[in-house]
Every structure is written in C-alpha cells, then in structure tokens.
Simulated scan of single mutants.
Amino acid sequence: MNKTSLRPFLLKAIALVLIANNAVAQKKAPQFVITAKVAHMTDSVVYLNYGTMGSSKTDTVKAINGSFSFKGHVEEPVPGFIFTKTYKVKIELFVTNTPISIVGDVDSMYNTKVTGKGVTQEFEAFSQKLMDNRKRTIALYQKAYDLKQSGDSVAAKALQAKADSQYNWEFKARIAYPSEHPNSYVGAKELLAYTSTITLPAAIKVFDKLDPSIKNSNIGKEIAARIDLLSKVEEGKPAQEFTQTTPDGKSVTLSSYKGRYVLIEFWASWCGPCRAENPNLLKQYKLYNSKGFDILSVSLDKDKEPWLKAVEHDALPWTQVSDLKGWNNEVAVLYGIRAVPASFLVDPSGKIVATGLRGETLNQKLESLFGKTN
C-alpha cells in the first residue's frame, strides 16, 4: 500500500478513535439521578434549581401522582432546591453525581427524607438536626402560649426563655459548622449565607481557615468574591457612588447628598419588616432632617404600581429611587444586598459610618450624632 492510499485509511481510523473516545467519555460522565415520591401532591410541574448563588440552573419536569425525577451532571457538589409553583413542595438538598431518593408528604414537608451519599448525606444529617430542633422549639412555644392562656404566666415565661434559647441554637449551629468542618461544601454553603456587611470580619477569619479544596471550589470562589465586594462597602470605606431614577424619571446621585448625613435604605413594598420599620424612619426623619439628616430609599420592587402605593400608604416624604430590577437592582448588587431591609449611614464626607441600622440602634446612632430633640 503506497502513501497516497494509506492516508485516507489513517484519517478514517483516527476519526473512529476520536468518536469512540468521545462516546466512552460521555458514557463515563457521572450523573445525578433524583427520584422523588411526595404524597398528597397536586402540582403537576416541579422545578429544581441548583448551583451557587452567582451561577445556578433550573430544570423542569412533570410530576405524575406525586412522582417525579431529575437527571443531570454537576462538576462538584452544589446546593439544590426543589419546589413547585404553589410552594407546597419545598425541599432543600445538596446535588451530587449519585442516586438521590426523596420521600415526603405535602401535609408535613418537615418530615421529608432525602437519601444519598457523600455531601448529600452530610447535608441531610445536618438539616435533620436543625429540623428536629425546630420541632422541639415550636412545641415549647406552643406549651408556653397554652400556659399563659391558662393564667400561669410565671411558668409560661420560663418556658418561653427555654424556647428562645433553643431557637438561637440553630443560628449558633449554622455559624459553627464551617469552622468545625473546614473541608465541607455544606460548611461553605453556611458561610456564604452568613457573610454580610455586619459579619464580615468574622466571616473572613472562617474563610481563611477553609481547606484549599473548598476555597478553590465554585462556592469557595463565590465566598471570596462576596468578601471582596463587601470589603468595599464596610464601615470606614467611601460609599460607592451610584445614580438611579425617581418614579418620575429624575436621576439622583449619592454624591448630591455630600455635606449631609444620608441613610441609604434598601427596601421593597412586599417586605414586611421593611414596612414595619418605615414609621420609625419617618419619626427619625422628622426629628433630624432640619439638622442635616436625610434618607435615600432604594426599592427592590419589580413593578412600579405597588412600589408607589407603598410609598403613599406609608407617607414617606424623602427621595425614592429604583431601576425596577428586583434583586438585580444595580445599586443593590453594588452594595452586596441579599436581604432587606438593609441600610448604610453615610457621613457628610461620603464615608460609610454604620451599617444595618434599624429601630433603636438607628435612633441611638442619630441621637449620638445630632443630640436629643424634644
């Protein structure tokens, strides 16, 4: 066989080898397979959102008589959330490339069981501890309420204190988990949720002690990015400049408040705690506005009508701005906002002097700056 006739043969052989190798690679690619059976379920469509906060994917499947399944591939273990449009079905889990089984009941989703291996199993065990504590806490609160109703206020108060302590245990357990499990994806998830402007110094210390494998994971990189972002808006740093528009289309810049103290208040019409804080904000505004205090509210609403109705109903006289992008509001992203209400107090020079002020903490801060008023 001469070289001319050999060449096509070699090309075909190489092509066949590449195709075979690709097929083997595809065949060997690990997959997650989630199978679920949820009793008394009436929803026919189920969603699975999985990934990190910064990069996630949502799959959709149909459910038949409460049975459904998801299949796919993840590069590494990631948090997942299964839900339906009515939210009657809500299941948290960790998605790994292993078989995962779910058994639950719409009438008692607290008792849902998720069975899997590795990180899935670890997350389920931790979640079960939290859930068991919640059940005991709810029972104590109910017993304290019953005692109070029956007239035994002393016993009710003691039981209430015990319930409060158990309630706080969950928060402490979540904070402790990443420190106690530095090589855990579950711990990294808890650390990401914990990291905020208020907890930043503590979060950095925990992050520094994480195993390199977790630091280099996608969720680890997201924690690092969040720490970097929040480090730019912590107390003592110059407030990040921004421009947004009022309901009537007027552009407002943060720098236009130079020379005055201004509270950047992140809120939304649908946020109950935000609306509950508005009367206090209004009271403080009336007390200190003439002394150099102002408020600039940034709404995380998506629709203009409920936003404006809330402003009118709560009688808020200060400037309101929004780009109506919800959680993707450009100012909210710039300041790392993932929960509302949230606030940043900026001094006349444009420096952040306090964060997370609400209720009495806000009142005391303003009193320290401007003095008591009658």
Rank of each mutant, 00 (worst) to 15 (best):
N218F: 09
D323R: 11
A354P: 08
K291V: 07
K258D: 02
N2M: 08
E360A: 15
S165R: 01
G356M: 14
L334K: 15
D107L: 07
Y257I: 05
K258M: 09
G249C: 05
A63H: 03
S69G: 04
K28D: 09
C274H: 02
Y335D: 06
P79D: 03
E180Q: 15
E360S: 12
R338T: 13
N2K: 12
C271F: 09
I82Q: 03
V17S: 09
R260V: 09
L287M: 15
P30N: 08
L281G: 07
V186C: 10
S101I: 14
G80F: 00
Q128G: 00
F266C: 10
C274Q: 02
K28Q: 13
K3L: 13
F266E: 06
G236C: 07
G326W: 08
A173V: 02
F9P: 00
D228R: 06
S290Y: 06
A36L: 03
Q142H: 10
L345P: 04
A125I: 08
F32I: 03
N216H: 12
Y335E: 05
L191G: 03
A20Q: 03
K250P: 01
E277I: 08
S44C: 02
A15Y: 11
A36T: 04
Y177H: 11
H73R: 14
N329F: 12
N329H: 07
T197Y: 02
C271E: 06
E170G: 01
S217Y: 04
K209G: 03
T253D: 04
N133M: 07
Y87H: 12
V119S: 08
N49M: 14
L362M: 15
S297K: 09
N133L: 10
L369P: 09
Q26T: 11
L147C: 06
W270Q: 01
K129F: 01
T197G: 11
F293D: 08
T4F: 13
A13N: 13
P79I: 00
V33K: 04
V24I: 15
K37C: 04
F242W: 10
I100G: 05
D146A: 15
N278E: 06
S343Y: 04
V95E: 04
A173G: 01
K135W: 02
V298I: 15
